[in-house]
Nucleic acid binder design. Structure first.
Length: 544
RNA sequence: GGCCUUGUGGUCAAGCGGUUAAGACGGCGCCCUCUCACGGCGCAAUCCCGGGUUCGAUUCCCGGCAAGGUCACCA
């Protein structure tokens, strides 16, 4: 068999030799410790938490080491393409402060492009031609039906499925057979002529998983599809080599194809990058857990967190706590430091998959929001409201002064202790709604209606908007005493049976009347913000 | 089914031959207190199972079991 001739027949014309690409894309002149990492999504436009998870790891490792993070678009499968997807990915990640140094749609030197795989087709073909010429790849004319039948047979025979060894029928086609098939216009793919033996295992050092055993590959995988576009495997080897990636951090669903990639790098004469296969985020699905899936878990898309109004920093902090187990401790010690100062270590990444825990995220969110200044909080809420809020909520921002007072009170600013009531923007705006409108619904009163009205009437009779907090509350105590409630908690606790209840019960009536809720920040302060007219109006409304 | 990976409280986890087995979230209780929140204190709850090795195994070895991933001209 004249492989040289075969290569020319299959891929006629001039293709640059591999050396030319080596020269065109030379090693980057970076320090040996600098990591070049990448994100290589397919352009579906859908990103979920799992993607963010990997993205943060790649970003940290690259930028912390003085390296490069680039964006490559794996658009070899046109079925996956969605318009505007690339911009959507960049935008979504920018929200979480992940920035690329180069790549698709990124301003930069971009000396290692193009970054869309479809635009790199000639490069892949050049390497494929070289492989064919060297006898390391061959055309395969098997149809989908052929392959399906093969798979059935292998399954029935309890053999490993796939195109390999004695099952690789086209592997040993004669020149005449190939000529005939070509002449007949049969479509074909290019397959790798694998040299491996899966019985032979190697120890491989994965940056995350540690030492793992990897069998040799014997699958004659497709490297060029019938449309001349490469498969992921082939494109991965060529791109990550030519773009001089030093570390590939990707989901562990790729672990199973590592043998293929290793053989590809070897047969192409490329130096292998380092690999880190990280566990995927899991979610409970009924009784069992499974990895996050874009198909099944739309609520875990990044868009979901934006819509809910989670602060990006909260999401990022949560991702970081899952990514590096010592992050939480570090963050506790350095609450004021930028997140980028945390010494991220790939070796600290977990070997097993973490279950996504909304409770934990919510707790982190509360802490993050409680650390914002009133201005920062207002900005955050405004941005969210403009995109997702109701017209009523957007109107909150017309009176900045009032909003500031509301937020200052609800965040506990000025007091000795910050409050931590807020989790998301959506929930926050909902939480402060009573400052802007009569509460749509009310918590149940603990006392009966007669008592409620008595409290309300007594309050209305003595209310003076000019009273300070001290005087105001002393009046509440008087109302309590008049109605047979203990004015002092001390007294009530000493002898509960002597009273109908305590001043707490009376205060609750007022609280529900004004805010609709049994729980709120300091009531007197709320009334000050509401203003006397509103206070009187709500007193009347509460009677009904 | 084959191959690979992983198994410490409900969740995230520290631990790497000898520990009262950290810490965080969640739960529960108490204190503070006009409510809530904050804060403080406390409680319950864990080393998948079985064999080894060892004076001693959560830690090492073997075997189970369970969970996850993967077996495409998708990435």
């Amino acid at each position: 068999m004249d492989f040289q001739k075969l290569a020319e027949r299959l891929l006629p014309g001039d293709y640059p030799p591999p050396e030319q690409f080596e020269a065109q894309y030379p090693p980057r002149g970076l320090a040996p410790s600098a990591a070049v990492t990448r994100l290589a999504p397919s352009p579906t436009g859908f990103i979920h938490l799992g993607n963010l998870f990997v993205a943060i790891a790649n970003e940290r490792i690259a930028h912390q080491s003085g390296g490069v993070l680039y964006l490559r678009i794996e658009d070899t499968d046109l079925k996956r393409k969605v318009d505007g997807a690339v911009e959507a990915v960049i935008e979504a990640l920018r929200y979480f402060d992940i920035r690329f140094d180069e790549g698709a749609e990124i301003d930069g030197p971009n000396a290692y492009g193009p970054y869309y795989q479809r635009a790199r087709a000639p490069i892949y073909r050049a390497y494929a031609k070289d492989l064919i010429a060297r006898g390391r790849a061959y055309p395969c004319f098997c149809t989908e039906e052929d392959l399906a039948r093969l798979r059935e047979r292998q399954t029935a025979e309890k053999q490993v499925t796939g195109y390999y060894g004695r099952y690789a029928r086209c592997r040993d086609l004669t020149e005449e057979e190939i000529d005939a098939a070509l002449a007949a216009g049969k479509p074909y793919v290019i397959r790798l002529r694998s040299q491996g033996d899966p019985a032979v295992k190697h120890i491989f050092r994965d940056e995350i998983k540690g030492e793992i055993t990897v069998p040799e590959n014997d699958q004659d995988v497709v490297i060029l599809k019938s449309d001349g576009i490469p498969t992921y495997h082939f494109a991965h080897a060529i791109d990550d080599h030519l773009m001089r990636t030093t570390l590939v951090v990707r989901g562990e669903e790729w672990l199973a194809s590592l043998p293929i990639h290793l053989e590809l790098f070897d047969v192409l004469g490329f130096r292998r990058p380092k690999y880190g296969h990280n566990c995927s985020l899991m979610k409970m699905d009924g009784e069992s857990r499974r990895k996050l899936s874009k198909r099944k878990d739309p609520e875990l898309s990044l868009a979901f967190y934006r819509r809910e109004g989670y602060h990006p920093r909260a999401v990022k902090v949560y991702m970081l706590t899952l990514l590096n187990s010592d992050f939480e401790e570090w963050y506790g010690k350095h609450p004021e430091s930028p997140l980028t100062e945390f010494p991220f270590r790939i070796g600290k990444m977990s070997r097993s998959g973490a279950l996504f825990d909304l409770n934990k995220l919510n707790d982190i969110s509360k802490n993050e929001l409680s650390r914002l200044s009133v201005e920062e909080m207002a900005d955050f809420l405004r941005q969210w409201a403009q995109a997702f809020g109701s017209p009523e909520q957007q109107a909150y921002f017309a009176d900045e002064e009032k909003l500031s007072r509301v937020l200052a009170l609800c965040m506990g600013i000025g007091g000795k202790k910050r409050r931590k009531d807020f989790i998301t923007a959506a929930q926050t705006l909902n939480e402060i709604a009573y400052f802007y409108a009569v509460p749509a619904q009310r918590d149940a009163y603990r006392v009966d209606d007669v008592t409620r009205d008595a409290v309300l009437d007594a309050f209305a009779a003595t209310y003076d908007h000019a009273d300070d907090a001290q005087v105001w509350f002393s009046k509440v105590k008087i109302i309590a005493a008049d109605l047979g409630f203990a004015a002092e908690m001390r007294d009530f606790k000493a002898d509960p049976s002597a009273y109908r209840g305590s001043v707490a019960d009376v205060a609750e009536v007022l609280r529900i009347a004004f805010t609709g809720r049994a729980n709120s920040p300091d009531l007197w302060s709320i009334l000050q913000i509401l203003g006397e007219d509103v206070v009187r109006a709500r007193l009347r409304a509460a009677h009904a």
